[in-house]
Every structure is written in C-alpha cells, then in structure tokens.
Design a protein around this nucleic acid. Structure first.
Lengths: 131, 131
DNA sequence: TTTTAAAACAATAATGATTACTGTTTTTAT
DNA sequence: ATAAAAACAGTAATCATTATTGTTTTAAAA
C-alpha cells in the first residue's frame, strides 16, 4: 500500500464533489474540475475518484445505468433514479437492516448487507406530466 | 417494431439459460452455446439475450460487477452475491413491496419499484473458512 | 414449389467507460 | 538542496457491449 501524497487535483475533485448532491459521473467531474485545472486528464479524475472511494472519503454508486456515479456523502443512505430524466437523488429514510435478516431466512450462508436503489418518476417530471 | 422470426440460435440460447440457475454472463452463454453452434458469434448471443430480455422471456441482472448477468426465471425475486467467490444465487423471500412505501415517505415524486441485491458469504465459502 | 422480403446470421468494426503505461512534474521527508 | 516516491498529463490498451455489412434463413405469398 503506497503512502498517499497530497495533490491539488485530488483536493479539487473532492471539493467539487462536495458541492453537488446529484451524484455526478466521472466525466461530469472532469469537465467541471477543468475550470480550475484546464490540463487535468480524465485518467487523473478516474484515478483519484477510485483512490478516494478506496479510502472511504467518497462512495461509488453503481445504479445499473452502465456509468459509475460518485457521492461525497459516505453515510449509508438510499438513492432514487427517475426513469424519465435519469436524475439521481437521495432518499431520507433509515437503513433497512431488517431486510438482511428477512433475506437470511431459508438461506445457507451469511448475509452482511444489501444494495438497493428505488426508481419511479421524480417530482419535477411528475409536474411536467400535468402541464 | 420488427416481427420476430424463429431462430435456432435463439432457441439454443434460451434453452441453455433454462438449464442454469447461476445467472451466467453473455460470454458464458457464448462458450456453452458454441458446443451446439460452433460458428455462433458473440454478437448473436448479445443480440438475442437483449431481444429475449426486451420481450420479457428472460431478465437481465445488473449486479454492480460491471458485467450483465442473465436469468431465465423472470418471476420477481432477489439475488445474493458472494463476496468471496462471486457466485450469484436466488433468495427465497417475498418481494418487499412495503419498502417502496417507506422510501416514498418524505419524498416528492412517485416510487414505482426498487432493485435490491444482497451480499455476504455463501454457504460453501462459509464452510471453507472452518477447514 | 419457386419467389421474395424481412429478419437473423457470422464476422468484424466501432463505441464508451474505465484502466494501464510512460516519461515528466510535485510532493515530502531527509 | 537532494532524492525517492507518488502524482501528473497524455495516450494507449482493455473490456463489455453495440453497430455495420454482406450473406444466409425464415416464413409467407405467388
């Protein structure tokens, strides 16, 4: 495990991510951090996102849309994906630890966690349907 | 929507999938169907898996490991992924419709469904730890 | 049973997200 | 200041998947 050295690029990536709660993808991070570091490369963005995720400072979301999303909020919480506009948002509910136990009934093995995301139509897209 | 014509390759793909309950990936399907159709191409496998999924005869699973898995069992059910060996297995529990309602509290929008998969250590890998 | 149009095929090229490589620059500890 | 290690930019490679193309199957009509 190589010791981690400070880097201005990594700080900028983390800082950008903290300003957003829409769980951007790597290339959204890239195009935004480019405002501060015009020469930053996409590889650097990916490497640092992976690094930050590995040490637990951010989390990587796989929401089944083929692209990784990143979140500066590492506290366990659930996400919602709008099937109309694709937007990702946080849900304000407690973690459903009890479903691990439910799933563990009639199962030979140990269940330690789960990944869940909810889908449907977001508030904005609901409004559009009525206009 | 083009009319679907019969194809022996598609039938073989569906038939292979029905013999397996470990949710194989496209290239596992490919290498197995090749025993019957040595000239079948990977593109044909992908095209037919997508086609079968689109008409609801099979389902496509995105389990966050970067590879699509396929399942001939289209009845709604949950999956478990072993963090040791990567094996995917079915869970025998009812669908947790109530968690959609829980998630919908304090949320501005309509929640119509969820995707959940559980992880942990499967029975076989648990056994290995004690030997 | 030929004919014919559409769908499916095999082969292969292209795409898109992500990771790996390479030679140069930063960081940080001596 | 020096030097070793980490990080960088730039770019090439990888991997899963999708698209293209010219040929073969299918299925239905002539």
């Amino acid at each position: 495990m190589p010791a981690m050295k400070y880097s201005r690029q990594r700080e900028a990536i983390k800082e950008f991510l903290m300003t957003r709660k829409d769980h951007p993808t790597a290339d959204v991070v890239y195009s935004n951090v480019r405002d501060v570091f015009p020469n930053i490369s996409l590889g650097t963005v990916y490497r640092n996102l992976t690094l930050l995720a590995d040490i637990g400072e951010i989390s990587r979301l796989r929401l089944g849309d083929g692209v990784d999303h990143f979140d500066a909020d590492t506290t366990p919480h659930y996400h919602f994906i709008c099937t109309k506009c694709g937007r990702v948002s946080d849900l304000d509910i407690d973690v459903l630890t009890q479903i691990n136990d439910i799933a563990g009934m009639n199962f030979n093995g140990q269940i330690t966690g789960h990944v869940t995301y909810f889908y449907g139509v977001c508030g904005d897209c609901c409004d559009e349907q009525h206009s």
